[in-house]
């Protein structure tokens, strides 16, 4: 009887653990799906807008190249400067 009870507890624990793992995997997949859906939606919206502008005669490639030409980064604080600042408030 005791052995049966122990086995039942063990089986329930294993089942719960299994459910937990399955739930984690499920959450992971859901998160990936959500990210993919968001990215696809953004790309679609972007493509639609570009097409619309091209139909209006806007040379999007030219505008993009002119407006979003990569520029050299500005000088920013080094880690030593950051570590010497006691709090964020002091920086601001």
């Amino acid at each position: 009887m005791k052995k049966h009870s122990l086995f039942a507890v063990f089986a329930m624990t294993a089942a719960l653990f299994g459910c937990g793992e399955a739930e984690k995997a499920n959450q992971h997949l859901e998160s990936m799906d959500k990210t993919l859906a968001q990215a696809t939606k953004q790309a679609e919206r972007m493509a639609d807008s570009i097409e619309a502008l091209q139909k209006l005669g806007v040379d999007t490639v030219k505008v993009f190249n002119n407006s979003f030409k990569p520029k050299p980064p500005a000088a920013t604080d080094d880690i030593e400067d950051i570590l010497n600042m006691k709090t964020e408030g002091e920086k601001k």
Binding site: R45, S49, L53, T60, F64
Partner: peptide, 10 residues
């Protein structure tokens, strides 16, 4: 971005 601002905003 000028005329592309609303597009890039996406």
């Amino acid at each position: 971005a000028g005329p592309l601002a609303s597009v890039v905003a996406n």
